[in-house]
C-alpha cells in the first residue's frame, strides 16, 4: 500500500461521523448499481485505455467493426478476415440465410454477430446502428460499406426503375450508414470508414450508366466525409477494386487481372489501417489503368468500347 493510499484510508476512518449522514437515496437501487458499474467502465475503458499507448496493445484490445453487405463477395471475405484479426464483427445483409454461413474462424478470433437488414430501409438504420454498437461493446473502430448491386443493362435499355434501385442500394444506403458512423467517429475522435467503390465510377461508360453514377457519387461523398472528419482524425477510405471473382462478375466476358475476394479483402484492410491511403485501387496496378482512362478526352472516349 502506498503512503498516500494509507493516509487516505486512515483519514476516512476518522470520519465515521459522516457515514451516518449518507443520503438515503435508494428507491431504485438496481438502476443505480447498473449505472455505477458503467461509470467505472467509462473511466477506465474510455477510448483512452482502449487506444494503443505503444505499438503492442493495439491488437490486444478488442476492436469492433461493422460490415454492411456481408452475405457474399468482398463483404463476406472482409468479415472472415476481420474476425480472424480479432475484431468483433457485425455482418449485415439482406439475405439472412446467407449470413448464417459466416462461421467464426477456429482458434483465437473475434465474435461474428449477424443482422438481416435491407439498406433501402433507411428509417431503421439509426436504431439498428445503436443496437449493434452496444452489442459489440459500446464503441466502434471500423465500418465497411460493401453493399452494392449491378443488374445487367442492355445496350438499348433505359429503365428508370432499375437505375434508381441501384442508386438506393449503392448510394442511399452508403450515405445512411456512413452518417451514423460519422456522428460516432467524430465524437470519439477515432474510427475508419471504408466504402467499396469501383473503377467503374471513374468514367461514365456505355455499359452500366447508373452503376457508374452510384460509384462516382460514393467517391465524392466519401471525399467530403474525409474532409469533414479530418479534424477528428477519422480515416475515410474509398476502395476501387478492379475485377474480383464474386457473384457480381461471374459470367462476364473479358475479365483480366482477376483476384479472389479474400485477396481483395486483405489488401483493403491493409489500406484501411494505413492513413496514407485515401483512395486505393485494388490491386494497386489498377491505379495506372484508372489514371489513363480518366485522362482520355471525351470525344475519344465515346468512340471506344471500354
Amino acid at each position: 500500500m502506498s503512503g498516500a493510499t494509507k493516509r487516505a484510508r486512515e483519514h476516512s476512518e476518522t470520519w465515521v461521523g459522516y457515514r451516518q449522514e449518507l443520503p438515503r437515496y435508494r428507491t431504485d437501487i438496481s438502476r443505480w448499481n447498473r449505472a455505477r458499474a458503467t461509470d467505472n467502465a467509462a473511466v477506465s475503458n474510455s477510448p483512452s485505455t482502449t487506444q494503443p499507448r505503444t505499438a503492442q496493445p493495439r491488437t490486444a484490445q478488442p476492436r469492433a467493426a461493422i460490415v454492411v453487405g456481408a452475405s457474399s463477395g468482398i463483404g463476406a471475405a472482409l468479415v472472415r478476415q476481420l474476425a480472424a484479426d480479432g475484431y468483433d464483427v457485425c455482418a449485415i445483409a439482406r439475405r439472412a440465410d446467407k449470413l448464417s454461413e459466416l462461421e467464426p474462424p477456429a482458434g483465437a478470433g473475434g465474435r461474428i454477430v449477424t443482422r438481416a437488414h435491407d439498406v433501402t430501409d433507411t428509417a431503421a438504420i439509426p436504431e439498428l446502428f445503436e443496437e449493434i454498437v452496444r452489442e459489440l461493446g459500446g464503441g466502434l473502430d471500423l465500418i465497411v460499406y460493401a453493399a452494392g448491386i449491378m443488374p445487367a443493362v442492355g445496350p438499348e435499355e433505359y429503365d428508370t426503375e432499375k437505375d434508381l434501385s441501384q442508386l438506393e442500394v449503392n448510394l442511399g444506403g452508403c450515405i445512411a450508414w456512413c452518417n451514423e458512423a460519422a456522428r460516432l467517429f467524430r465524437t470519439q475522435r477515432r474510427g475508419t470508414i471504408v466504402g467499396i467503390g469501383s473503377i467503374a465510377g471513374d468514367r461514365g461508360r456505355k455499359g452500366s450508366p447508373a452503376y457508374a453514377t452510384t460509384k462516382a457519387g460514393m467517391a465524392t461523398y466519401l471525399e467530403a466525409l474525409r474532409n469533414r472528419l479530418a479534424e477528428a482524425r477519422v480515416h475515410v477510405l474509398t476502395v476501387k477494386p478492379g475485377f474480383v471473382d464474386t457473384d457480381m462478375t461471374r459470367g462476364m466476358d473479358g475479365l483480366f487481372w482477376l483476384i479472389s475476394a479474400d485477396d481483395a479483402a486483405r489488401t483493403i484492410l491493409k489500406a484501411a489501417h494505413n492513413r496514407f491511403w485515401s483512395t486505393r485501387y485494388v490491386p494497386l496496378r489498377w491505379w495506372a489503368v484508372g489514371t489513363v482512362i480518366r485522362a482520355i478526352p471525351s470525344f475519344l472516349f465515346r468512340r471506344l468500347n471500354i
Binding site: D39, A41, A42, S46, A123, E130, G138, L184, T187
Partner: peptide, 24 residues
C-alpha cells in the same frame, strides 16, 4: 429524421470538455 415520435437522437461518444472522462 426526428419523425414526430420523439426528439432527434443519435449514438455518440459524450465526453467532458477536459476529455479525461466520457462514455458512449
Amino acid at each position: 429524421e426526428g419523425n414526430g415520435r420523439g426528439p432527434r437522437s443519435s449514438y455518440e461518444y459524450v465526453e467532458g470538455w477536459g476529455m479525461a472522462v466520457g462514455a458512449h
